[in-house]
């Protein structure tokens, strides 16, 4: 009887303990609980397992005899041709041209989209003026303009950068405006009652509050940029990752094409990681749960 009593007593004192431990993410009882935070090491391990499973699948299927090796090489062949590309075929300069196109076009896109998005998200009248226009342009597929761009701008970098810009900038404006609009009204009103004028509130509240959202939006849109880059370089280019892949196609070098795809994937991932790093370093105030 007394044993039972003390048992319930300890169980009662245990309850608050586990309750405070749970949010820190150290332990959870079930493998598939909702909203779990899992330790970094375990997350890394699971990610590796996913990749290994994929590579294994690729290796095994490439060794089955349903397609000739030439058309469907395995991972080992692709990685060795990747090495060859970089060491012997000057692929590095192709990568530099592609990355340069991405960086320049995306830089211009941000320069255009940021002021417009900030103003549209802040002022309903600017939004009413521009949203119907830009919102419609967003749905015109940028590749449809390639014939025009080729006639107007030739086959050089201007044409490619313009295509990349067109593919991204309209979405970016609308999305940055949306981010700006999320600024809580009460923060703006607080700044007003502290004596803030329009210009001050625009920068110290709306822009500042939206900054993390801007970085995150740019991270997502950059992925779209890579899609248009490949299109631009496949259509007409002498250098760049896409151009290399088109050359390889002419000589049926499937392993080189696959190596190009892998390169793009890795580059995209690197940029993504870079943006996440910037986010974590620049916005420590968001706390752990939001980063």
């Amino acid at each position: 009887m007394t044993a039972k009593l003390s048992e319930t007593a300890t169980r009662h004192t245990m309850i608050p303990k586990t309750a405070t431990e749970a949010p820190s993410g150290k332990r959870s009882d079930h493998w598939f609980d909702f909203n779990q935070t899992i330790p970094g090491a375990q997350r890394f391990m699971l990610g590796t397992v996913g990749w290994l499973a994929f590579l294994l699948f690729w290796q095994v299927t490439s060794q089955l005899e349903f397609a000739p090796d030439r058309l469907y090489p395995g991972p080992a062949a692709v990685f060795s041709s990747l090495q060859e590309l970089f060491l012997e075929k000057g692929f590095f300069s192709d990568v530099v041209s592609s990355v340069t196109r991405i960086v320049i076009s995306f830089g211009i896109a941000i320069l255009i989209a940021l002021p417009l998005g900030l103003l549209m998200g802040s002022f309903a009248r600017v939004d009413s003026l521009l949203n119907p226009l830009l919102g419609a342009w967003r749905y015109l597929p940028a590749p449809a303009f390639i014939p025009l761009l080729l006639m107007w701008l030739g086959t050089g970098d201007t044409q490619k950068i313009t295509l990349l810009l067109m593919g991204v900038v309209f979405f970016l404006v609308i999305m940055l405006a949306d981010v700006t609009r999320q600024t809580p009204r009460v923060l703006i009103e607080t700044a007003k009652t502290l004596g803030g004028g329009r210009r001050i509130i625009l920068w110290t509240v709306l822009f500042r509050h939206s900054l993390p959202g801007y970085v995150d939006t740019c991270r997502q849109m950059l992925a779209v940029s890579w899609t248009y880059l490949v299109i631009a370089e496949i259509v007409a280019a002498t250098d760049g990752i896409g151009a290399m892949m088109m050359r390889a196609k002419r000589f049926v070098h499937v392993d080189d094409i696959m190596a190009g795809i892998v390169t793009i994937g890795v580059l995209g991932l690197l940029f993504d990681i870079l943006f996440r790093l910037v986010y974590r370093k620049c916005f420590p105030y968001l706390g752990r749960e939001q980063s």
Binding site: V186, L187, E189, T193, R208, H209, L211, F283, Y285
Partner: peptide
């Protein structure tokens, strides 16, 4: 003015 909602600037 002090509002009911929390209005500290988080940054």
């Amino acid at each position: 003015m002090v509002f009911q909602d929390y209005t500290s600037f988080p940054w």
